[in-house]
Design a protein around this nucleic acid. Sequence first.
DNA 1: CGACTGACAGATTTCAATATCTGTCAGTCC
DNA 2: GGACTGACAGATATTGAAATCTGTCAGTCG
Lengths: 181, 181
Amino acid sequence: MAEALTAEHILTTTEDVLRRYGPAKATVVDVARALGVSHGSVYRHFPTKAALREAVTERWLEQAHAGLKEIAESDAPAPEKLRSWLQALFDAKRKKALGDPELFATFEVLAKENSDVVAEHVREMVEQVAAIVGDQRTAQAVFNATERFHNPVHAADWVEDDVQDKFDAVCDLVIAGLEAS
Amino acid sequence: MAEALTAEHILTTTEDVLRRYGPAKATVVDVARALGVSHGSVYRHFPTKAALREAVTERWLEQAHAGLKEIAESDAPAPEKLRSWLQALFDAKRKKALGDPELFATFEVLAKENSDVVAEHVREMVEQVAAIVGDQRTAQAVFNATERFHNPVHAADWVEDDVQDKFDAVCDLVIAGLEAS
DNA sequence: CGACTGACAGATTTCAATATCTGTCAGTCC
DNA sequence: GGACTGACAGATATTGAAATCTGTCAGTCG
């Protein structure tokens, strides 16, 4: 570790440690050890363990949903655009949940710990839907109606072999509802 | 306890014990003690502790959703009927969750333990929706779209003072979608 | 001076012993 | 005979002492 110790560097290492030890056992001392510094140094960059984990949560959410904004801002017709935005969100979540279940479980714990960070992120997601459907209340309704396909608490259901069809059915219903109004 | 020991009697007492001690600490010995019999007697009626708790779960689900069937079988027009069925389901759940949060938490634990019982119950609920909307796939979609307002994992959100409005928004969207098809 | 260390107090977690519980069954009692 | 008991083996939970962790800060080092 000849490099200067940066917040960025600590975050990356914390992710590694979380991946390796899991959310229950990963300690600040572990992170410091992995960085080759004393744990006091970590506390110069993050005031508490909770703040460190919160920062990790923010980063994860950010990169997990990269690419959605582009879809929301593309100029396809609203119904198709909404469908592909929702599908992209579902695909991203599902891929994470099924690809590395242990890491996903770790993320779930962090997400529960930092529900305010998650809430803010959800707010941004709904904002993107509002940009597609044009109306805040409807956007919230669309987001809520598809909760089963993006909220991690339902991840266990995403292995069913007919999830995609269930997703399509809800999408069909929601989009039909939008076009009716 | 001059009365004969019946399965029914054991179930009622088990509910009491669960209410008093919570799901983690309630034991078969506690139930037997409350009944004034030895725990061996309880095992004459239920093969395992798990079976006993499963039976309690079934009873709870049953009585929690009493009255829904009547709405599903009434002869109001489909859209209103669907709305009042969904509203009745939401009201029942919300009342339980807010009225006695501790008991509801106990129920949540039992529900997780006995997910197959819950799954069967959900199947019946979807059946009732299908009787209203006429089609299985759509019924499933309606049920999934309103998940946020009946699945206990979302109970924490039911205290928000705008839940009812969020519920109405989803209902509006879903019902508009139904009428469009 | 400012990045970093390491020893420290109090809080939290781990671990192993002890106690309790689950499920069985031979035996009691009406 | 059939409902019930209570002692038992193995599994699970509780407890309290010891180990580790969190967060602080006076002090080192370049």
